[in-house]
């Protein structure tokens, strides 16, 4: 049971947070450690998702289920797909379209090791993921 939870957690990390997840997992070495990343790393470690425990009111590492829920929620906000959208035609000729929670603009932010905060209002998931994972293009490149 416990092992299954760790495995699921690792898969979700990779799915949701790409490169940063791999870093957090130590390129595979941490994944083989006795405890899964969510259970092992201290609260506040870089790359670790946190959650406010409704029972204790304190921050704790997010469970795989909570991480997936948050990731899915973000994807939903940023969906700009018309798939599943259904217009309603009204008797007066008017048409309405329920956006189903998509087509949102989302503010994301990250902190670099030197403490500088990058923030952006984005409208696609790839951009949000790039900033959240710290993979956004640096302001200056050397070559």
């Amino acid at each position: 049971m416990k092992k299954q939870q760790r495995t699921a957690s690792g898969v979700l990390w990779v799915a949701a947070f790409g490169a940063v997840a791999l870093l957090a997992l130590g390129a595979g070495s941490s994944a083989a450690a006795p405890a899964g990343p969510a259970a092992k790393a201290p609260v506040g470690a870089a790359g670790m998702q946190v959650f406010l425990d409704p029972a204790t009111g304190k921050m704790r590492p997010a469970t795989a289920q909570e991480m997936k829920a948050m990731s899915d929620r973000l994807k939903g906000f940023l969906s700009r797909s018309s798939e599943g959208l259904k217009a309603q035609e009204h008797p007066n000729g008017m048409i309405s379209l329920d956006l189903q929670g998509g087509f949102m603009n989302v503010w994301v932010a990250s902190v670099s090791p030197d403490g500088k905060v990058t923030n952006a209002c984005v409208n696609n998931y790839e951009a949000a993921e790039a900033i959240l994972s710290g993979q956004a293009a640096p302001a200056y490149e050397e070559q």
């Binding site: 956006l99 087509f103 603009n105 900033i131 959240l132």
Partner: peptide, 26 residues
Amino acid sequence: FDPLTCTATSATLGSAGAIQIFSGFP
């Protein structure tokens, strides 16, 4: 206010947008 993605180095701050859009109205 809901728990959205957050780590020690990154966070989703919030989101907003229209619930519905309309065309051809009076």
